[in-house]
């Protein structure tokens, strides 16, 4: 098992929430450490460019 997965299962879970803000609220209410990303579609909403960016390591 990799270190990243071991670290996850050992807890505590520390979450970066990207998307529905309700999840962030529920996690915060349980005292889970969470940071909400103020997400908007990357690359001005062009999925192909977004994909290219993630491959370029953005």
């Amino acid at each position: 098992m990799s270190d990243a997965i071991k670290d996850l299962l050992a807890g505590p879970v520390k979450v970066v929430n990207i998307g529905l803000e309700g999840f962030e609220a529920e996690l915060s209410a349980q005292d889970v450490e969470v940071v909400q990303v103020d997400w908007s579609p990357p690359a001005g909403g062009d999925p192909k460019l977004a994909d290219l960016l993630s491959k370029l390591g953005a």
């Binding site: 979450v15 990207i18 999840f23 579609p41 990357p42 977004a50 993630s54």
Partner: peptide, 17 residues
Amino acid sequence: GANLALISVPGDFAVAE
């Protein structure tokens, strides 16, 4: 020490995130 990204963006962008 963040260890999990919880992703609920539109499907077109989910894999990139």
